[in-house]
């Protein structure tokens, strides 16, 4: 099983194939989908895509970290991180597809 990496190009190619818009417009639509999702997350909203998964933003509190190499203490500022929870459907398909 040779592992490939797909990119935006492959997604727009799929849109091109399925919907029959121009390649250029397909690429723009892929971009707008990603932009709308990003914008919602930046506003602090969750993005719930049924049968795909949920992206949510979590607030992490400030804490004191340590440089593992030097042992030096460094303050870690409070920050927002994104987590993705795959749907059951995605988990099942990924598990089934990669079974040997």
């Amino acid at each position: 099983m040779a592992e490939k990496t797909l990119t935006r190009m492959d997604l727009s190619e799929a849109v091109f194939r399925e919907v029959g818009l121009s390649r250029n417009e397909s690429a723009q639509l892929v971009e707008s989908v990603l932009n709308h999702m990003s914008d919602a997350l930046v506003r602090g909203e969750s993005v719930k895509i049924s049968s795909f998964g949920t992206f949510s933003v979590r607030e992490k509190a400030a804490r004191v970290g340590r440089n593992p190499k030097t042992g030096e203490e460094v303050p870690i500022h409070p920050r927002r991180v994104l987590t993705f929870r795959p749907s059951h459907l995605m988990k099942d398909r990924v598990a089934a597809g990669n079974k040997r």
């Binding site: 990496t5 797909l6 990119t7 799929a14 990603l34 795909f52 995605m90 398909r93 990669n98």
Partner: peptide, 19 residues
């Protein structure tokens, strides 16, 4: 199609990298 394509890729063991 976009979401389906991503699941499909992962089911084949592939990565999807969206810079």
């Amino acid at each position: 199609t976009i979401f389906e394509e991503i699941i499909d890729a992962m089911s084949n063991g592939d990565r999807v990298e969206l810079r």
